[in-house]
């Protein structure tokens, strides 16, 4: 039991020691001051916003049309 615990602690310590403290997520945009990195950053932001915009517009127009139809039915 004790041996297992010591072994687990040793392996965990070894993994923590081996793993680097800091990681660079993307080699293309690691330095945001470079023009190409800024380009990647804006491009990612723009494309990330698109699905929300698309679903928002489609969902919004369906919602608005049904709400207007219901309002017309009531009046």
């Amino acid at each position: 039991m004790l041996q297992k615990m010591v072994l687990t602690i040793l392996i965990t310590t070894l993994i923590i020691v081996i793993l680097p403290l800091t990681l660079e997520a993307c080699p293309s945009c690691k330095n945001l001051n470079e023009p190409i990195a800024r380009g990647f950053n804006w491009s990612v932001m723009f494309m990330m916003a698109m699905p929300f915009t698309v679903f928002g517009i489609i969902g919004g127009s369906v919602f608005y049309t049904y709400r207007r139809a219901n309002r017309d039915l009531k009046t």
Binding site: W42, S43, V44, P51
Partner: peptide, 23 residues
Amino acid sequence: LGAETMLFAGLIGAFLVYRMGNV
């Protein structure tokens, strides 16, 4: 049109990378 928007978003995204990557 949603699918078309995603297509154009990809193309505009590529344009932004090249445009901003060049001084």
